[in-house]
Design a protein around this nucleic acid. Structure first.
Lengths: 217, 217, 217, 217
DNA sequence: CATGAATGAGCATTCATTCAT
DNA sequence: CATGAATGAATGCTCATTCAT
């Protein structure tokens, strides 16, 4: 996974092991910043090169195509969420609802910690060519199945409203998690931790007893 | 508001009455379809013209710039949500929570009814020039204030968990509403009405008793 | 000559004699104004139509091509200068120098009276297609020959410095006459008549005794 | 001044010294030739690129906009005339009339040496955007004031007809100088030097004793 | 006469990518 | 590794002109 974003074969020598990883990371960081500010479509290779203080021709020592920058960013993000899943799965002694709560907190925290890249991800994933994009979509489906099964377990254990559709709830859960990138302000009133907590509570509330409120005519 | 998306002065005469509104609507419809499929940035004026069966030069009888197509779409959308707000505000005999429930249902239904345009809205609003974009952002803030005050009223009336931040909850509510455009499938298992209902229940559950679930360590 | 600017055959009926000449003149006047302000190349047919308060399609009832507007303007101008020549030729009892003086005055006055059109003429004659342009160039050469022979007559009569080349002097004379459109300001300090007089004096001075001043090393 | 025509910041690196000035000059030379032949408005970037034997996209390595080509040409011209002024101002032991004579000769010679560019200048200066154009207009006003004060000095010294308006005479002087680009033919009978001399004599004659010729009725 | 929708050819400009030095 | 000139395809937009109504 780690290096899959590199078209590889023709690009750079890379003689011994994994050289120059730091410079690669700088390139991704610059791309992330500019994509976040201007959007991928409105960013030129020149813009990224300027941010790095090199000429645009030189940038091609690190990438083969502009799209590689996007894919590099996205690979890193998915690696991060994969870790969240691993951690939540491995946490001992939690019931399904507590596990869901933990997942939401961790995912929200991760997203807010990687605000720029997450923003780029949800804005510009569609620009990645179909083949590579499908890989990301599959990984996302995996997260969805993870959450859906947590909700089902909670319903089976009598901890959540069984009248609600677990898949649909899962979508609402991810809505709450993901949408934070649209309204979180790093310099705002609420800290990332507070936001993660409130999102978790909102989600758990919605899953547990959505059915208790009487719908209006 | 209705015609504000037209740069107007130089584009077409239109001196007597409101002629040919139908053709304008066809133009927007074509733009909506193509923008939805390809994204605004990757759509050429040629693409839209092709969809209409005219030459690209001819399209400029209806618009002054490509951006006008976007703005035309967005104006229509905001007009629709404005109506939702009016309707929910005017509904008699509802407590704040019921009103919130109604708002969510109506907004979700409207969004799913206008799936393509809503998708374009959230994907490509950023491409509209700042001046015009600000107008839309302001209108969105109005919706947010509307929901926030419903939540506050519910908290004051003892209908909702007072320990949660109303503004933050409002963000979660909109997350649930808006994100539907990302996972709804018109030909899927659940109807738009069912989705609207479940979203409303999820939201009300999250607002009402988020605080009751014990957070895990 | 008068109507030669009309491509004619296909344009308008014109059933009885010379109908609608007034409207034609309005069209030329509008074209003159706009060409003067923006230049021919930067003026659109739309601009001229706007000035007339009609639609651009309608303008084609009066012209066949955009170039016709230019040619119409230029025909009028040449007709005016032709009259100046006739008048100066017919004036009785003048020696060649006096006749030159009169010509300069009359030509300058005519140019300043038709400032906009003259400006368009010298700016945009080159845009007229070669065939039609040649006609104008020929007419201009006729004026030049007229002035050149006045100078020669003056030299022969001992009234002007014979050491100067008459053709070259003629060019300087026209320089003085024509260039006025570049610096004359209708609301300026000097009246058109005063300018005409001073130009005439300058020209006569230059022709008469250019040779008397000692050239510097 | 020399490099001011380059929009600079974004165009090409050019960090060390002044590399490739030759290529820049070739670009301007090509532009000059084509603008002279076809006029700025009727010249496409493609035309200029063809003249250089490169693709039109490549031309944008040297310029940011088409207008830059014009401005580059004009900057060079003004630099040339500035030198003429400096030289004439510094010439020792000349009375005002001799200085005027020298200025006319030098200016005419410069213009005829730069025939194409001068032609483009007087034809297409108006196409330069207002901000940049004003700079050129100011420089031209400076030349006019220089000549006007030479004439005033000559009048004060009893060398020129005091009854004529110095400013107006200055306009006639420049008319004579500038208009040469309209009638000079490099392969014609008269050499550039001969033309410069005759222009100078014509001008001095016009300034000296314009008032002596008796105006006709 | 007037309208205005449509045409179709053209243009300035942008930009990802390549490659010789 | 870095440079920067060159490529070449594409794109938004303009505009003179036509023509059915």
């Amino acid at each position: 996974v780690e290096e899959s974003w590199r078209g590889a074969p023709t690009a750079r020598g890379r003689r011994r092991g994994v050289p120059h990883r730091r410079r690669d990371e700088e390139v991704l960081q610059a791309a992330s910043k500019i994509f976040y500010e201007r959007g991928y479509a409105d960013t030129t290779i020149q813009d990224v090169a300027d941010e790095l203080g090199i000429l645009k021709g030189s940038l091609y020592h690190y990438i083969k195509t502009k799209e590689d920058l996007l894919v590099g960013l996205f690979d890193d993000l998915h690696a991060g969420i994969d870790e969240v899943i691993d951690e939540v799965s491995a946490a001992p002694g939690l019931d399904p609802l507590q596990r869901l709560d933990l997942y939401v907190r961790r995912h929200v925290l991760f997203n807010l910690d990687n605000l720029e890249r997450i923003s780029v991800y949800y804005t510009d994933l569609r620009r990645v060519s179909e083949g590579r994009r499908n890989g990301f979509v599959e990984r996302r489906k995996f997260y969805e199945r993870f959450v859906t099964s947590l909700i089902r377990d909670a319903q089976d254990a009598g901890l959540a409203d069984p009248s609600l559709d677990a898949e649909m709830l899962s979508n609402c859960v991810f809505a709450t998690i993901i949408w934070t990138y649209r309204w979180y302000r790093p310099d705002g009133r609420a800290s990332a931790a507070e936001i993660a907590e409130q999102c978790a509570e909102f989600v758990v509330g919605g899953v547990v007893e959505g059915a208790l409120s009487a719908p209006p005519a």
